[in-house]
Amino acid sequence: MENRYDLNKNLAQMLKGGVIMDVTNEEQAKIAEQAGACAVMALERVPADIRRDGGIARMSDPQMIKKIQKAVSIPVMAKVRIGHFVEAQILEAIEIDFIDESEVLTPADHLYHIDKTKFKAPFVCGARNIGEALRRIGEGASMIRTKGEAGTGDVVEAVKHMRTMTSQIRKIVGMGEEELMNISKELGAPYDLIQYVHKTGKLPVVNFAAGGIATPADAALMMQLGCDGVFVGSGIFKSGNPQKRAEAIVKAVTHYNEPSILAQLSEDLGEAMNGISVQSLSEDMKLSKRGW
């Protein structure tokens, strides 16, 4: 009766209400775990550095990922380039807990994403809207996250993506059944998944926030907008006091609805990451445009 896809969606459920942190070495991984992260994303450079350095961003060195797997007991995720199924095969071979097919790395295929149904390991993918989310789920993703705009420290895109999804879900729920095929065509989303959303009013998988979250308030904002949990990339280890900020963001995700607690834990966190406003980015600098 084993159903790998169900088990993979189940793991995503266990991550809910938690914070997944980008880490680039064992020390950072341990800090993240001690701060209460529910998982870590192992990568060589955080998005802010990838953005700064330019060039081609690829899957991380498996040796570095293995060191992080040894250093912590929580799930370890890692990124592959969009469409790069061999990078995904390599991560599966080292028993990664979750593969992020990510727009933060340079895409390897301009037309196709990875056929995720071919893998035993679970995948998380970014999405800007419901069509994109359902296409990724149709390809076998076990978890969705907003794309936001990684490496900026500007939460505006994550908000936009989450609000877009919520409003589209409401629209689909309110539609007549005879309208579903047409909206499926318009959104470029699988018909059966549109039917699922129509019936249940939600995505069939867990949906996290990602891309630009830098403060406890940002994290709580995304939770109040309906996300199941939060990814924090550059926001922690590019800040003045990573340990304290990491812990504050973890607490903020648990008590996202209690302003007095949020006020307390937002105090004296030191400097937040030095961000870039998304508005100032030219279109070709936006990572969230990657993905088809």
């Binding site: 266990m14 938690g18 209460g36 929580i74 799930p75 973890v250």
Partner: peptide, 15 residues
Amino acid sequence: PGGESTSIGKLLDVF
């Protein structure tokens, strides 16, 4: 419930 024990344990402590 299920989740990450280190995460839940930490939060039990800090709260």
